[in-house]
Amino acid sequence: MRHRSILEYAQFRWFKGAVALTCLAAAAYLWHDPPLKPYGGTWLGYTLGTIGAVLILWLLWYGVRKRRYRSTSGTVQGWLSAHVYLGTALVVIVTLHTGFELGWNVHTLAYLLMLAVVGTGLYGVFLYLRVPRAMTENLGVETQAGILLKVNDLDREIRAKALSLPDSVLALVDASLKGTRLGGSFSRLVTGRDPSCPTAAAVTRWAEASRRLTGDAAKVGKETYALLLRKQQLLEQARRDLRHKALLDLWLYFHVPLAFMLLAALVAHVVAVFIYW
């Protein structure tokens, strides 16, 4: 059976629902003839605002629902599909709620936060559509643990071989053996690169360092170099995988805190509106 993404869940049920909701809101907005001009305080403005606020609370509830493994209210796929589509529809509902009245105030802050949350969410959807395929292409049947084991084997082999090489070459190999690492910092995880990787340095500087090898040493040198290249390949593969995992994770570090910031701004918005009614 072909894999169906959450976007196609139940024959696009939530896509249709979101489109219907959006069209309904847009039609009401066009039909509505507000006194003065459209804004959040007309009856339609209050209606759209209430729908928007309920949607925001419901979208936040997804974070709770997805952790309730024993819940029987729909499937998590269904919830996520609805989360994505209704979250996108929220942009239209809330924009119409504002009546395009923006300014330097807490109300616009809530609006911008809403846009930011939906924007990061859509970025997350984009990532989840792209990155898993890239992960499969990168790793194939390999696993990260498998790569680590392979690198360790290579290390042993390299260590044994490199002993027959002169100090200058051995130093390169030794640095690669002792100093190579995966992850460890935000930039290394997110970029999938380690500009100070000793293995990469060893590979780059190998030609220079091994120029004067002759005879048996040259042969051992070549073999060591081949092993180093293989090791570097494995490291790059592992780093790409770490990067993919970091990317799948990173957007949530914006999406989730922004969502709670939005919840706070929503509270501020509603309080501000009704405290000075």
């Binding site: 680590l148 290390d155 190579t180 460890g184 910092s185 935000f186 995992k245 970091a246 570090y253 989730v256």
Partner: peptide, 22 residues
């Protein structure tokens, strides 16, 4: 070995926190 040197392989292991930021 490489595995012992590479303990921080996820953003979470770097001490980043979603809940705290939220």
């Amino acid at each position: 070995d490489l595995a012992t040197r590479s303990s921080q392989l996820t953003l979470g292991s770097l001490g980043l926190t979603k809940r705290g930021a939220a």
